[in-house]
Amino acid sequence: MPSDRLLVIVEDDEKFASTLRRSFERRGYEALAVPNLDALNALLETRKPGFAVVDLRLAAGASGLTCVQALHTADPATLIVVLTGFASIATAVEAIKLGACHYLVKPSNTDDIEAAFTRGGDGDVDAPLTERATSIKTLEWERIHETLMETGFNISETARRLGLHRRTLARKLEKRQVK
Rank of each mutant, 00 (worst) to 15 (best):
A95H: 11
L139R: 14
L169W: 12
A133W: 05
T110P: 09
E94A: 09
A127H: 11
G152I: 08
M1Q: 04
G61V: 11
G64C: 11
I136L: 09
S108C: 15
S88I: 04
A90G: 07
G64F: 03
A31E: 01
D55C: 04
L83P: 10
S3P: 00
H102W: 08
T73L: 03
E150N: 13
D38G: 02
G163S: 08
L98K: 14
A100S: 10
S18P: 00
H165G: 15
A52N: 07
A59L: 12
H145W: 15
A74Y: 01
I144H: 07
A74P: 00
D75M: 03
T151I: 13
I136E: 10
R27F: 04
R57Y: 15
G50D: 01
A59W: 03
R57E: 15
G121N: 05
S18L: 14
I155H: 13
N41G: 00
V93M: 06
L139K: 12
S23Y: 00
A74G: 01
D112M: 14
Y29S: 01
L162S: 11
L139V: 12
V10D: 06
A92D: 08
A116L: 08
E131C: 02
R176I: 06
K15L: 15
K137R: 09
I96T: 07
N41T: 04
T151G: 06
G120K: 00
T138N: 09
P128L: 15
E131H: 08
E131V: 08
V34I: 06
L43V: 01
V178L: 06
S88C: 02
A59I: 05
R143T: 14
K97S: 01
N36G: 03
V54I: 12
L104W: 11
I9P: 05
N41C: 04
T91R: 07
R167P: 01
L7H: 02
A60F: 06
T134E: 14
I9E: 05
V125H: 02
P2S: 05
T138K: 11
A31L: 01
R143V: 13
M1I: 01
F86G: 01
L139A: 14
D75R: 04
A62S: 14
E131G: 15
A62L: 09
S3H: 07
E30Q: 06
A42V: 10
T19F: 14
L129F: 07
V53Q: 04
E45V: 02
L129S: 12
T66D: 15
F24S: 07
D4N: 00
L71M: 09
S18T: 15
D12R: 05
K97L: 05
F117N: 05
